[in-house]
Design a protein around this nucleic acid. Sequence first.
DNA 1: CTCGTGATCGAGAACACTTCTCAAGAAACG
DNA 2: CGTTTCTTGAGAAGTGTTCTCGATCACGAG
Lengths: 133, 133
Amino acid sequence: MKRNTWQREAVRGALDDNDGFVSAQALHSALHATGSPIGLATVYRALADLAVKGDADSLQSPEGESLYRACSSNGHHHHLICRNCGLTVEIEADAVERWAKDVAAQNGFTQAAHVVDVFGLCAACTAKAAASA
Amino acid sequence: MKRNTWQREAVRGALDDNDGFVSAQALHSALHATGSPIGLATVYRALADLAVKGDADSLQSPEGESLYRACSSNGHHHHLICRNCGLTVEIEADAVERWAKDVAAQNGFTQAAHVVDVFGLCAACTAKAAASA
DNA sequence: CTCGTGATCGAGAACACTTCTCAAGAAACG
DNA sequence: CGTTTCTTGAGAAGTGTTCTCGATCACGAG
């Protein structure tokens, strides 16, 4: 049985408020900042639940943190992420899907899953970086 | 100034002895098993050095560990990894390179780096899995 | 060969992130 | 309203990685 608690709603809401990927810790801080006395453990639990149910995507940042994001599209897709501000764009990658499957098949691999994410600097951050450089 | 110490050689050697990706901890254990009194911190340092110099590739396992591998090809390339036995195949991905750059450019992103790795079951492990299923 | 310098080593402490523990709290349901 | 039992939350525990710092050893100079 799954219960509906305000804590879970709060986590989902905080995720929705955010355009890009956020770390569990950041989410926890943000919630605290708004006055929620929610616990860190609960945030982790809620995020894990959302990820399992497919209501959120998760990925590991290059620094090793787990990042989460509320993703609308239910299907399989990938992300283009600004490493500076966290802005995230969902991208389709049919070509890459096929490529991954082909490569796997050519080498006798089955059950191919793939990790495909692109990190870069978004236009705004590129401009900022250029200005400060 | 960089010195040549037997410890560094040992790490590089242990990496060479391994076909697939290994975690720093596993490498440390392996070295200890052969009698090397090398320290864990040193293994981490050596691996980081190798990765920086391009003599080793590093990636994060889905579990969050940092894995390392001695990669012959100096250029940029990706991996097809058996999630069961760790067997790793280096793959070229010109198409994906171009795709990543295009997608990034289309969205105004610069300095695009990408994470592209394919996990699957190699032929041998697929057969084994089928046999045991 | 011997010496001096300073990069490197290693054991453990320190850290960051995540998961677990368990008593207290509160949904859901009759 | 009361009972049941899932959920919460504070902190402990666990895991993987990095840092600290005195001791050590490689390397070039003499």
